Amino acid sequence: MTLFVDITPEEARGGRPGAPRAPGESRLRSLATRVGLPLLSVVVFLVVWQLIAISGIWSETFVPRLGTVWQAFVDMSTTHGGVRGYAGYYWWEHLYMTLRRVFAGVVIGVVLGVALGLAMGTIGWLRRLLEPWLTFLRALPPLAYFFLLVIWLGIDEAPKITLLALAALPPAAVATTTAVSAAPIGLVEAARALGANSREVIRDVVVPSALPETFTGIRLSVGIAYSSVVAAELFNGIPGIGGVVKDASNYNNTPVVLVGIIAIGLSGLIIDGILRTVEHRVVPWRGKV
């Protein structure tokens, strides 16, 4: 004789029968996972860094102690010995100038890239004409053509913003082109059968279907532009975090270099978080259809 035992999902997972997990408990567990694990990884990294610095395996010029890095941060935040911050500017003033340059370059690059991708995705001959140039530009490291921009545009803001725009343009253009080309043929044909003209098809069918991948391209554009900040601020980059990193590296001032790197990385994380929030609001159907 075969016996069938009725068990609850909680019992199957090893929990107590008849004790479903409260919604509040699930949210707390999820929050602890999302916040606790990243914090734990940061703490472990800092502990390992401090142990290496204390051990003396490498010179403090290469691996400074956390206290030395903190003192560099304090010095960049205050006026000490008659010196205001670093090179006459506080660290947030350097960061503001960098963010302003990145914002200007990314806006120009993303707007041109999305418009170009939309055109290339809908016009076949234009895609075949311009795609090799986009691939060529995407393969170039920004530092390779920055010196040419300096020769053409001087050492003021123009070459910096142009460099960031050129770095941001290819990812947005390629992502948008691919997304537009992959628009559902069935929806496009259905819209045309209902009397929609080409402009209405692009506006009501192609663009909404391309938005998720376009946002991915925009996030990639921001990341690549941000990673090009040090190159963009190679000349006349102060005030600017990239300029601070470059200037401090000339004097082996590792603590200041680390402060600059941390400022760039944390602000990049915040910007990416903002972009994700905007994406969830603008494209709420992503991953659900």
Results as ranks from 00 to 15, higher is better:
residue 180 V to P: 08
residue 188 V to C: 05
residue 107 V to H: 06
residue 11 E to K: 02
residue 119 A to P: 03
residue 84 R to C: 03
residue 204 D to K: 12
residue 98 T to S: 13
residue 152 W to V: 10
residue 239 P to K: 01
residue 43 V to L: 14
residue 208 P to N: 11
residue 221 S to Q: 10
residue 182 A to F: 07
residue 52 I to E: 08
residue 181 S to F: 09
residue 236 N to G: 14
residue 210 A to M: 05
residue 172 A to E: 09
residue 160 K to M: 05
residue 59 S to Q: 13
residue 192 R to C: 04
residue 135 T to E: 15
residue 245 V to Y: 02
residue 123 I to R: 12
residue 235 F to M: 14
residue 135 T to G: 07
residue 181 S to V: 14
residue 27 R to H: 11
residue 210 A to P: 04
residue 198 S to D: 15
residue 123 I to P: 08
residue 193 A to H: 06
residue 251 Y to C: 01
residue 250 N to M: 13
residue 258 L to K: 00
residue 102 V to M: 10
residue 93 E to A: 03
residue 73 F to Q: 04
residue 96 Y to M: 11
residue 34 R to I: 11
residue 105 G to Q: 11
residue 242 G to W: 04
residue 258 L to Q: 02
residue 72 A to N: 07
residue 31 L to S: 06
residue 198 S to I: 02
residue 264 I to P: 00
residue 116 L to M: 13
residue 41 S to P: 00
residue 280 H to L: 06
residue 42 V to W: 15
residue 119 A to Q: 09
residue 81 G to P: 01
residue 17 P to S: 07
residue 178 T to G: 07
residue 114 V to H: 10
residue 117 G to K: 01
residue 75 D to T: 11
residue 62 F to D: 10
residue 63 V to F: 15
residue 237 G to I: 03
residue 25 E to S: 08
residue 188 V to A: 01
residue 242 G to I: 05
residue 120 M to G: 01
residue 202 I to Q: 03
residue 267 S to C: 12
residue 288 K to A: 08
residue 196 A to P: 04
residue 248 A to W: 05
residue 225 A to S: 14
residue 263 A to I: 11
residue 233 E to P: 05
residue 64 P to A: 10
residue 224 I to T: 12
residue 235 F to P: 01
residue 62 F to Q: 10
residue 37 L to M: 13
residue 211 L to S: 05
residue 247 D to I: 00
residue 39 L to Y: 11
residue 255 P to I: 01
residue 73 F to D: 00
residue 76 M to I: 04
residue 262 I to H: 02
residue 224 I to S: 09
residue 147 F to T: 13
residue 242 G to F: 08
residue 33 T to Y: 14
